[in-house]
Structure formats: C-alpha cells, structure tokens
C-alpha cells in the first residue's frame, strides 16, 4: 500500500522517533546477545563485590553486592523487561480490542455489560492490583505478564469502543451491511483496519507502562525469583545505596531510557498516523 510508505517517510522525518527506534534497537540487541556474551548467566560471581564501574578492567559497569557483573545483569534484565512489556501489551491489545469492538459495534446490552466490567477494572489502582494478583498466584514471569495484562486492557477497550462507535455510523459501514456482509467480516475487515493507527499509538504507552510495572514488582521482590530484571537489580542495590549507589542508578537509567524511547516512538507514530495532526 503506497499509504504505508508515505507514513513511514513521515515517521522517519521526525528525529525524536528515529532516536527512539535507535535506542530500542540497541536494547533489543542487548537482550538477544546476552547469552552470547555471558553464557554463564547474570548471577555468577565474577569478582569482588561492590567494584565501581571501570575499577577493574573487563568489568565495564562494575559488580554488585554479590560480585556479579552488572553489565550481564543489565543485558539479561533487558530480556525480562522487553518480554514482559511486549507480551503484556499483546495480551491487552487482543482482549481490549475484542471487548471494545463488540461493545462499540453492537451497543445495547452487550455494550452495557462489557463497559460495566471495564469500568470496574479501571477503578482498581493498577499497580496495587498487580501486587495482589502476583501475591496470590505466586511470582513467575507468566503471572507478572498476566497481572499486568489484567489491569491494562480496559484502556484499549475504551479506545477501540470509541472508534467503533464513530465508525459504525459511517455510510461505508451501512453500505457493507446492505451488500450483505456479515457482522464479523465488517468488524474485522472494514472497521478494525481504520482504527489500527490509534491502537498502535496507544500500545506504545502500554509497553512502556508494563515495563515500569514489572520493574516496580521486581523491586518489591514480587518478580520471578529465578529471573534477573532491571527492577530486581534496583531492589538489590537499595541496601547499599550509600556505599554503591551506581548499583541502583545504572538499571534505573536503563528503565528510564527505554521507556523514554518507546514514548518517543509513540509520539512520532501519532504524528505520522493521525491525519488531523498531519495537516498542519
């Protein structure tokens, strides 16, 4: 589709979007190559604990309380953060789109029921809910992903519903019904493609939020105990904050930069995909 090429050009014209992509690519590369550079995993003791960055050759970011290489932790942690962020976003998008599409297209009692459920979930403070769910189910990567998804799909559902309410009244949707198209086909092939850009933009926020929530959970010790993540590294540095603040600051900086890059991508996507803003 020539439209897609135009949109890509528009996206690439924005330096902030390109910067965001560059950072995200770098973080992804770190996650993918972690096993290659550190085949023994992130928790092996490699040197004396609490070595400052650059204090010993070969240990670029120093060591933590247990004498593990912080660089290894960061690279393995990128895996956990990205995995949780992307999976949670994917689950939320699927659930939210389904709920939003059905309530927006059919309205009536289906809409009433689904939207009350959505409201109910939205009133729960999301981080607390995640804490409770992980606490009950037990800490594992899957439970963290599920708990984040449970609290974040309503945002997508609301967005998709609003788009469907708007689009279902367009005459082209009426025309589809008049030519005899089934509801499912109208929803999937006619209306959904027209709200894709909004969903894409919203999902970037979702990924960023999921990374932060995961970090928060791990910081509180509610993450998967067998997985090193940026959140758990921040948590473990807490006790030695005075003596070795770098142990906390380095993973925190990675969280900040990664989330920032995703937000930059989201903004650029919004500008490229939203035709009303493009006019200016």
């Amino acid at each position: 589709m020539n439209g897609a090429v135009d949109k890509l050009k528009l996206f690439l014209r924005r330096p902030s979007g390109v910067l965001g992509i560059a950072i995200l690519v770098a973080v992804t590369a770190m996650a993918l190559t972690a096993g290659h550079f550190f085949p023994d995993g992130p928790t092996r003791m490699v040197a004396r604990p609490l070595l400052w960055p650059g204090q010993q050759a070969g240990l670029l970011l120093g060591t933590d309380r247990m004498g593990s290489d912080i660089l290894a932790g960061i690279m393995y942690g990128a895996r956990a953060s990205l995995l949780v962020g992307l999976s949670a976003a994917a689950v939320s998008i699927v659930v939210g789109t389904l709920v939003g599409a059905v309530s927006g297209y059919y309205r009536g009692w289906a809409d009433d029921v689904l939207m009350r459920i959505t409201d109910a979930v939205q009133t729960i403070p999301s981080f607390l809910a995640a804490v409770v769910i992980v606490g009950v189910v037990g800490a594992s990567l899957t439970s963290v992903i599920i708990s984040i998804s449970i609290v974040s799909w309503p945002m997508i559902a609301r967005l998709v519903r609003a788009e469907f309410l708007r689009l279902r009244n367009f005459d082209f949707v009426h025309a589809c019904r008049i030519i005899g198209m089934s509801d499912a086909r109208i929803i999937l092939t006619q209306i959904l493609p027209n709200c894709l850009s909004s969903i894409v933009v919203a999902s970037s926020v979702l990924v960023a939020t999921a990374i932060i929530v995961e970090a928060g959970l791990s910081f509180l010790g509610l993450g998967d105990p067998n997985v090193v993540s940026w959140g758990s590294m921040i948590g473990s540095g807490r006790t030695v904050l005075r003596a070795g603040w770098y142990i906390t600051v380095i993973p925190a900086a990675f969280v900040v930069v990664t989330v920032l890059s995703i937000n930059l991508i989201g903004d650029a996507l919004n500008d490229a995909l939203n035709p009303r803003l493009r006019e200016r």
């Binding site: 439209g3 367009f170 005459d171 082209f172 009426h174 025309a175 019904r177 008049i178 030519i179 005899g180 198209m181 089934s182 006619q190 493609p193 027209n194």
Partner: peptide, 23 residues
C-alpha cells in the same frame, strides 16, 4: 437474511466521502 436482501435492493448515500472506506 441480509444476503437475499442485498440482491433485491441497494443504496447510495448523501456524503460521498463517508460512504467509501478510506482504505
């Protein structure tokens, strides 16, 4: 019976932009 109906009658609308799927 949307399909049978469609063979009998079709409709043209007022707003020429809104009646076509932009994609």
């Amino acid at each position: 019976d949307r399909v049978a109906w469609a063979r009998m009658v079709q409709m043209i609308f007022q707003d020429p932009m809104g009646s076509l799927n932009p994609r």
